[in-house]
C-alpha cells in the first residue's frame, strides 16, 4: 500500500493518541464539562479529606445546641441531636460516593456481561436476554428496590447491591448495540481468522472499542445512584442512623421542616451539586468522544 502523506493522511489520522488528544482539547473547551469535572473533584476531595476538614465530630451529640440555625460555629446549623450538619454532610459524602461508585460498578459489570453475550451471540441468546431486560424495565425500579431491601435488610453494602442489581439494563442495551455494530468489522474477522476464542474476541477486541458509551452512561449513572440512595435513605430504607448520609439527613429535615429549614436545604444542595457534576461531566465526555456531537 502506498504511503499517504500530507492532508490526506491528516484527514485519515485516527491513531488513538490523536483522537484522545482531540477529545481532551474538546473536553477542555467545553466549559460545562469542565465545570462538572470541578464539582466532581471538589466533592471527591471533601470525602477523602473528611477527617481533616470537618469542623466537628459528626457523631458528637450536644444537647445544649439542638436545632441551631446557621452560625459561624455551625455554618449549616445543627440537627435535632445537636450534631453539626456541615460535618455530617462532609462525612456523608463518603457514603454517597461509595454507594454511587460501587453500585454503578456492579451495574456496569452485569450490563457488560449480558449486553456482550446478547450482542455477540445474537439469535436465541439475544432474544432471551433482551426479553429479560424488557421484564426488568417494565417493573418500577422502586418496587424492585423496596422488595430487595426487605429481603436483605437496609445497610450500605446492601444498598449498593440493590442499586447495582436494578440499574444494569441501560448499560446492557448500550453494550449490546455496540457489539452488534462492531462484531461485523474487519478486525473481529481478523481476530477470528487468527483463531482467537470467543472470550478473547469479546473482551480484548470488541469491548475496548465500544467502551465510550459505557463510560458516559457509567458517569451519569453514578449521579443516578446517588439520587436513588438519597431517596431510599430519605424513606428510612437506606443508610441507617447514626451513619450520616445525605438522604438520611434530609429525612430528619422533613421531620423538622417547620422549625429548621437548614436541615433540608443544605444536604439537598449537596446532592444536587454532586449529581449535577456527574451529569454534566458525562454529557461533556460524550460530546468530546463523539465527533458527530449526537445526543440521545
Amino acid at each position: 500500500m502506498a504511503r499517504l502523506t500530507g492532508p490526506v493522511q491528516r484527514s485519515m489520522g485516527t491513531s488513538p493518541s490523536r483522537t484522545a488528544q482531540q477529545a481532551y482539547v474538546h473536553l477542555r473547551r467545553n466549559w460545562l464539562a469542565a465545570g462538572g469535572g470541578v464539582l466532581v473533584v471538589i466533592v471527591f476531595a471533601a470525602a477523602l479529606l473528611a477527617p481533616w476538614i470537618s469542623p466537628h465530630d459528626p457523631a458528637q451529640i450536644d444537647v445544649k445546641s439542638i436545632l441551631l440555625g446557621p452560625s459561624i460555629q455551625h455554618p449549616f446549623g445543627t440537627d435535632e441531636l445537636g450534631r453539626d450538619v456541615l460535618s455530617r454532610m462532609i462525612w456523608g459524602s463518603r457514603v454517597s460516593l461509595e454507594v454511587g461508585f460501587v453500585a454503578i460498578g456492579i451495574a456496569t459489570f452485569i450490563g457488560i456481561l449480558i449486553g456482550a453475550a446478547a450482542g455477540y451471540y445474537g439469535g436465541a441468546v439475544d432474544s432471551v436476554l433482551m426479553r429479560f431486560v424488557d421484564i426488568m424495565l417494565s417493573l418500577p425500579t422502586i418496587f424492585l428496590v423496596l422488595v430487595v431491601i426487605a429481603i436483605l435488610e437496609p445497610s450500605i453494602i446492601n444498598i449498593m447491591i440493590v442499586i447495582g442489581l436494578t440499574s444494569w439494563m441501560e448499560p446492557a442495551r448500550l453494550v449490546r448495540a455496540e457489539f452488534i455494530s462492531l462484531k461485523e468489522r474487519e478486525f473481529v474477522t481478523a481476530a477470528r481468522a487468527l483463531g482467537a476464542a470467543d472470550g478473547r474476541i469479546i473482551f480484548r477486541h470488541i469491548l475496548p472499542n465500544g467502551l465510550s458509551p459505557i463510560l458516559v452512561s457509567a458517569t451519569m449513572g453514578v449521579g443516578g445512584a446517588i439520587l436513588v440512595e438519597s431517596a431510599l435513605s430519605f424513606l428510612g430504607l437506606g443508610v441507617q442512623p447514626p451513619t450520616p448520609s445525605w438522604g438520611s439527613l434530609l429525612s430528619s429535615g422533613k421531620d423538622n421542616i417547620e422549625i429548621a429549614w437548614w436541615l433540608s436545604v443544605f444536604p439537598g444542595l449537596a446532592i444536587l451539586v454532586t449529581v449535577l457534576g456527574y451529569n454534566v461531566l458525562g454529557e461533556g465526555i460524550r460530546d468530546a468522544l463523539d465527533p458527530r456531537q449526537r445526543e440521545r
Binding site: 430519605f234 434530609l250 422533613k254 417547620e258 433540608s264 439537598g268 444536587l272 456527574y278 451529569n279 454529557e283
Partner: peptide, 25 residues
C-alpha cells in the same frame, strides 16, 4: 439547558420539601 440539568440532578423529594417549607410553612 441549565434548568434541564438541574431538574435532572435534583432529588425531587427535596424540591418537595423546599416548596413545602416556602409555600406551605
Amino acid at each position: 439547558t441549565l434548568f434541564v440539568f438541574v431538574g435532572y440532578s435534583m432529588p425531587h423529594f427535596w424540591l418537595a420539601l423546599l416548596l413545602i417549607y416556602l409555600l406551605g410553612v
